[in-house]
Structure formats: structure tokens, C-alpha cells
Simulated scan of single mutants.
Amino acid sequence: MSQDLSTAAAEADVENGGRGLAKLNPQPRQAYDVVLKLHNAPGPFERIEGVAQYDVTNEAECGRINPETGTAGRITSQEPLALKRVADDEYHGTVYLDRMLDEDYYGRGVCHWKFSGTGALLKATGAHEETRFLTFIDADRFTAGDTLTRHYPARDYPRASPVEGPSGITSIEDYPARGNEDPTVFVPELREALFSISLSAKEAKQ
């Protein structure tokens, strides 16, 4: 975004998923290598999108004040994370903890950013009606080098099955499948046909 972006345009940009007035750090240094792995995938995933999330830690001192409530709005930014395929079921990327630039964006003090975590969205071909398989690892586990593995019913691939309700059968489009770390929470018939997505990271060698 332009440095002289108007406040109104910045707010509209944020509403559309942009970063508004916030700027990227031109020289980030705190790099982490990210690995996404698929296990027993029921089919190919043509759309795999990563994201790194950052949140301001002192919005009360620096955030834009909502004129209706008098409170500071939460300032967050989700920056794209490129995931490169290195094997049939493995993708690599790089996340910078210091990707955002600490600066006074609203004339009320310097906004201090903190990395909150990273996640991914996967779809079979990318078609709207297909299931969105989602995963997200928070910053503490990310920087500690933990591996987050979430399990998903294979039957939701490539799209969730229609459900029958009081008004008849309803088609489910763009279903957000968030999975579960514990595979035993699924009923036995689903437990026998699960696949998983793992996210892990380690500090990059300088």
C-alpha cells in the first residue's frame, strides 16, 4: 500500500483482508523454515496456500479508535506464505517473525507487532465448492519446534457430502474442515479413513 494511503482507504483495505497502513519490514532477519507434510492424503491438492499472522501487542496505545465505542480496534495482518512443493506430500516455506514494521501508523504511538502463528489452506483443485482443509500452529509451538498434526475425515475430500435436514438435503459448499489433533474423537467409521496434515518449523541457519 502507498505510504500516504488515506485513513478511509486503509480501513477499506483492512476490511478486504489487506494490511491497511501497516508496512512490511524491508530487512527481516528472524527466519524460520516451515515444513508442511501430508499423510495418507485421499487425493492431490492443487491449491495450497500458507499464511503468517501478526498482531499488534499495544493497540490501546497505537490503534485506531472506533468513534462509536471509543475503543481501539484490533490490528492484525495475515501475510502470504509461499509453500514450495519438494516431494509428493511435502512443502517448504520461510516465515519471518519480524516481518512487520513497528511504526506510528495512527499518530498515537508506535505499534509493536508480534508473530502469532502460521497456517495453511488446502483444496483439491481450488474450486469454490470444495472443502477447505485448514490448519494453524500458534507462535509458542512454532518457535519451540513442535510439530502440529491435525486429522481429517477422508470422506470430506474433495467436498463435504450433502446433509439431510428438516427441509431436505442441503449441499455443503466451501466447507471449512479444521480437523482435530486427537484422531480418537472421530466415530469409528470415520477413524478408519483419516488423513493428516502436519506443520513444523525450525530456526533457519544464518
Rank of each mutant, 00 (worst) to 15 (best):
G50H: 07
A8L: 15
R85F: 04
T69A: 03
E46K: 15
L101T: 00
A82H: 14
G73W: 08
K84H: 07
G109Y: 05
R85K: 15
R85S: 07
A72M: 10
R155G: 09
A8S: 15
A41L: 12
D33Q: 12
R108D: 03
E46G: 15
H112W: 02
L97E: 04
A177W: 00
D33H: 10
T7G: 00
T131K: 01
D55L: 10
G117I: 04
H92C: 06
V51N: 14
G126E: 01
P42R: 08
P28M: 14
G20T: 02
A154Q: 09
A204W: 00
F45H: 12
V56A: 01
I172S: 06
D102E: 05
D156G: 00
G107K: 00
T147G: 10
R108P: 02
R64T: 07
P28E: 05
Y32L: 10
E129C: 08
D89G: 03
R85H: 05
A10W: 04
V185F: 05
D104I: 02
V34H: 08
S167Q: 13
Y91M: 11
M100V: 02
L97C: 03
R29F: 13
H39R: 12
E173N: 03
T149F: 14
L36H: 06
T118M: 14
G168H: 08
F45W: 11
A204T: 11
T71Y: 15
R99V: 00
G63R: 11
